[in-house]
Computed example of a mutant assay.
Amino acid sequence: MMPRPVKNKKELRAVTFDLYNTLLIGGPADNDTDISAQVFSNALHLDGMEMDEDSAAEMFATQFDRSKKDGFTYFERRIATFLDSHDFQVPDTSIQQYAQAIIQSWGPRWTLADDAIDVISVLKQNGIAVGLVTNFDHYPYVRELLTKWELDSLLDAIVISFEVRSDKPAPEIFLHALSSLRVAPEEALHVGDDIVDVEGALDVGMQALQIDHTGAVGSKGHVVGVPVIRTLSELTEHILL
């Protein structure tokens, strides 16, 4: 599919954003798994189950049944499946606590982009609705982050993959956002760092911009012909002309 040029404010009625590496900027991630495995291993130890950090790290690659509906988020289901495979029987509340502790350990390296609030505010002042479209397997944490960074009150639609049972680049997650914002695909623009953001948006007929805060877009893939911006502020230069 050939990418479409970015339209101006008279033609756009909505902009949707990815969350991680788009509205939020992360520090070095080299030791994320090590830290999370340590947190997980320590939590198991406190509950009387011994597992070294290397073994605990294997949980992040565990395959699990996404069709099962048992009150768990996908991330909690991954943990439960992993523990079952090691014959560890734990209550649901403990699994939920492990999930929260692990994900909270990622928090310190993420911060809100300096220009995020200003850009969203400018869009809304120009009559453009603003939404979030993010892939995340543990939706309560995303909700917490949005409250922490005071984004929840600014967003007209919040679409988290687990809640709609669809992950980018599948069309369903984008179509859900468009329906919530009450706009047609050609009236909306999606901004994200990953190729799944760009290709998913284009495939449903939306506009797309790829953002590259860190210079790492090349490692994630880039759709030829789609504009790349380095800051959120550059977005307004593309659409508010």
Rank of each mutant, 00 (worst) to 15 (best):
L154H: 00
H238W: 14
Q96S: 15
F174N: 09
T134Q: 06
S85K: 12
A116G: 10
A99D: 08
A201I: 00
D54A: 13
A56F: 07
L232H: 06
A56G: 05
F72Q: 00
A57R: 15
T93H: 11
R143N: 14
W149A: 08
I79G: 02
M1Y: 09
L175N: 14
R66W: 04
I35Q: 12
V226F: 01
A101Y: 09
D167G: 03
S179V: 05
S180R: 15
V196H: 15
L19V: 05
N31Y: 13
F64C: 03
G200H: 03
D194E: 11
G221W: 01
D54P: 03
N126G: 07
T62H: 02
L175G: 06
A116R: 00
E50W: 13
P169C: 07
I229M: 09
I95L: 04
M206C: 01
V130D: 09
M2I: 13
M51T: 05
V224K: 13
R143I: 09
R77P: 00
R165F: 10
D52N: 15
T22I: 08
L241A: 14
V217M: 12
I102S: 10
A177T: 14
K69C: 03
D18P: 08
D114G: 09
E76P: 04
S41A: 15
Q125C: 11
F40P: 04
V6E: 04
E144P: 00
L23D: 04
A57E: 14
L83V: 06
S166Y: 07
T16E: 08
M59A: 10
